[in-house]
């Protein structure tokens, strides 16, 4: 086919209507996730000592950092769903700031770090929090991926990673609001590390699934 014929065909189809601004898409997805995780919390019930925990600055800081990580990851994912994300290159690094703060907080709360304690914690094999974060996150992750697919991501792995990170961070907050486990090492190992794991899984999923618009 000649290029001119292709152009005529494309003109006949016409351009698509403008997609949502990534900020608006992120806010919409945030509202959805707050409702979704709110419903899960409603069924699971808050932890009995939540009122006491809210008076602890470190606990509030931890939940706040997790929320900021999820929020910025959601924004980053929606910006990364655009082909010209290079016009806002700093956005994909934004989630690492609150995430780094959260990691620092975990390390601070675990200090002094003991390899024996770490080994004992590993032996506990508390896989349920990991499984819960992943299972609760499947539906919102599917919704976020669906929205991103409607755009035109070029950096598909990054976009998938940010989407999964956002979902995992909200799952982390859910567990901290409903589970009574407060041991810093267990929280770091069985709540926080799955967040990183999900980001990696999201990266792989993004690389496989987000390229449909280009096919």
């Amino acid at each position: 086919m000649q290029t001119e014929e292709l152009v005529q065909q494309l003109v006949a189809q016409g351009p698509k209507k403008r997609w949502l601004h990534p900020g608006k898409a992120a806010l919409g997805l945030l509202a959805f996730m707050l409702v979704y995780y709110g419903l899960i919390v409603g069924f699971s019930n808050f932890r009995t000592d939540l009122a006491v925990k809210f008076k602890e600055p470190l606990y509030l800081l931890e939940v706040g950092c997790a929320f900021l990580s999820g929020l910025t990851a959601l924004f980053a994912a929606n910006w990364l769903a655009l082909p010209d994300v290079g016009q806002r290159p700093h956005i994909r690094f934004l989630p690492f700031l609150p995430l780094g703060a959260l990691l620092g907080l975990q390390l601070y709360m675990m200090s002094p770090l003991s390899w024996d304690a770490l080994y004992e914690c590993l032996k506990l094999e508390l896989y349920m929090p990991t499984v819960r974060i992943m299972l609760y996150g499947l539906f919102p992750a599917a919704i976020v991926f669906f929205v991103m697919e409607k755009a035109a991501p070029i950096r598909c792995c990054w976009a998938g990673s940010m989407a999964a990170l956002a979902v995992a961070c909200f799952g982390y907050i859910l567990l901290r609001l409903t589970d009574g486990m407060d041991d810093p090492m267990r929280v770091a190992m069985w709540y926080f590390m799955p967040v990183g794991l999900m980001a990696v899984v999201g990266m792989m999923a993004g690389g496989m699934t987000l390229k449909r618009v280009w096919r």
Binding site: P15, K17, H21, L82, D84, V85, Q87, I154
Partner: peptide, 20 residues
Amino acid sequence: HRSSHTYNTERSFKAWMFSI
């Protein structure tokens, strides 16, 4: 053409086009 909906007129068109 397929990604025409992702262009936001507040940003540079050429940067968007050349990215694709």
